[in-house]
Design a protein around this nucleic acid. Structure first.
Length: 424
RNA sequence: GUGGCCAUCGUUCAAUGGUUAGGACCGUGGUUUGUGGAGCCGCAGAUGAGGGUUCAAUUCCCUCUGGCCACCCCA
């Protein structure tokens, strides 16, 4: 009795979500095109080692969340389904010698990603991200361009209250000193911290800033903020970005506790957030500058910056706000028929209408004509063409509820096309 | 990976340790020998899976599967 069902965390997208998903994806490509970002389609799997290198020693990510594929045949390497797009994009940048192109190289993709996570609403094992990367420019100007591009994309979808939470995570020069300052701040209360937070204190004190544990939250409130501890270069960079975004008109909130877990991240870090959403569902995406990543993956030292916006979350937010685009409606014209034998004729007429640019389908059933018309109405059709027993056609206007006299085929088809042009 | 809540037709809600698990929506057919979403009358359709307790389980218990929530993680 029990049949197959989609595996955990992997879902079917049915209407109207399927159309919304496609729409948000189309708009993402269009936004990238308009800004001069080159489209790049990356493989859905890479060497597992690429992702492992990118996330370094962060054991949870590698051991828990990567979908590895067993090597087979002559392949010696283990592949993994991509959990992110950036690593692949940077790999492509290096592999194809894009450093010899004008810098920065602007890349855009919409990618299906896979992470073995415990699923929740807005958090799936297969998900889609709109990904933008600009590689080869270390200045703050490109930061402004990239941040604005993502914010504008979300705004144009209708999420007009999107906020950008902005921070700088410093660089190899200033961050280590700040981390020690942070460690010194939390150490006096280390006995009060949870077990998880105590290990964070030892290995990654930055993560204490976004801990959920009450003791850590309390102490974090008085913690020194990184923006007060940036080196001169980082501070200057951050100042340009922060003031520039205000000028551009992006809603910016300083988020001095916004952190990144990986060492290759530098300077600018931000997230796109929607206020008022439940849980993490308001977190639509985020971005960061990764001046250390190209080198980490084997290229010459090259700065880079990018963002990823979760299409699934975007669609959820649109749905929650009643902003889903109208799902693709049924065909404008339905070709019905009196006699069952007219099916081929109906299909042929529908094809002719489509070839002329209209949306049309034949009613291929043997139902009585009344049911066929009812079906057309429920599909949202504007007109029905009825194939009469004598081969002539009758055009019925479903909007005006009026019907013409039966006539010859050519004239009726032309009239139907005019009708849907005027009313559609 | 940890903890918790949940699981009944396609959808959304009922009910019950004991005949045929009920309604609404959707679907389908009739009403209407050939013309509109209504009304009326039919039809189809479910206790997620597997064990256990019991004379009897959809109901109680366990496991699995899946959804959701918090945590972990969030590249």
């Amino acid at each position: 009795m029990s049949g197959f069902q989609s595996p955990r965390g992997l879902r079917d997208l049915l209407e109207p979500l399927a159309s919304a998903h496609g729409w948000a994806t189309d708009r993402a490509w269009a936004a990238a095109d308009a800004a001069g970002y080159a489209r790049i389609e990356l493989p859905i799997a890479e060497e597992s080692a690429l992702f492992e290198r990118a996330v370094g020693g962060t054991s949870d990510i590698v051991s828990k969340e990567l979908y590895r594929l067993e090597p087979r045949g002559d392949d010696a390497v283990t592949l993994a389904l991509r959990p992110e797009a950036t690593a692949g994009a940077v790999r492509a940048y290096i592999q194809h010698g894009m450093r010899s192109q004008p810098q920065p190289v602007r890349l855009a993709t919409v990618a299906q990603l896979f992470r073995y996570d415990r699923p929740q609403k807005g958090r799936y094992r297969q998900f889609t991200q709109f990904d933008i990367e600009a590689i080869g420019d270390g200045g703050p100007g490109i930061d402004l361009e990239v941040i604005e591009l993502g914010a504008a994309y979300l705004r144009e979808l209708g999420l007009t209250d999107v906020q950008v939470h902005l921070n700088s995570v410093g660089c190899a020069t200033c961050r280590p000193a700040y981390v020690e300052t942070l460690r010194a701040h939390f150490t006096p209360v280390s006995q009060e911290l949870s077990e998880v937070d105590q290990s964070r204190l030892a290995t990654n004190p930055l993560r204490l800033l976004d801990s959920k544990e009450p003791a850590a939250v309390k102490r974090a409130a008085s913690a020194p903020v990184i923006t007060d501890h940036l080196c001169a270069d980082c501070a200057a960079h951050h100042a340009v970005v922060a003031s520039g975004l205000a000028t551009i008109g992006v809603t910016v909130l300083a988020a001095p506790r916004l952190v990144r877990g990986l060492d290759y991240y530098t300077r600018t870090a931000w997230e796109y957030l929607l206020p008022g959403e439940q849980g993490q569902q308001g977190a639509l995406g985020g971005g960061g500058r990764y001046d250390g990543l190209v080198e980490l993956l084997g290229g010459t030292p090259t700065p880079g910056i990018g963002f990823a916006i979760g299409i699934d979350r975007v669609v959820l937010a649109l749905e929650a706000r009643g902003l889903l685009p109208i799902a693709a409606s049924g065909p404008a014209i339905v070709v019905a028929g009196i006699e069952p034998e007219s099916v081929a004729e109906r299909v042929a007429i529908a094809a002719q209408l489509r070839a002329a640019g209209a949306s049309a389908r034949a009613d291929v059933s043997t139902r009585k004509i009344g049911k066929q018309i009812e079906g057309a109405v429920r599909d949202g059709a504007l007109a029905v063409i009825i194939v009469e027993p004598d081969g002539r056609l009758t055009l019925r206007d479903l909007v005006k509820a009026s019907q013409a006299e039966p006539a010859e085929r050519g004239g009726v088809i032309a009239a139907a096309l005019r009708l849907v042009q005027n009313e559609g």
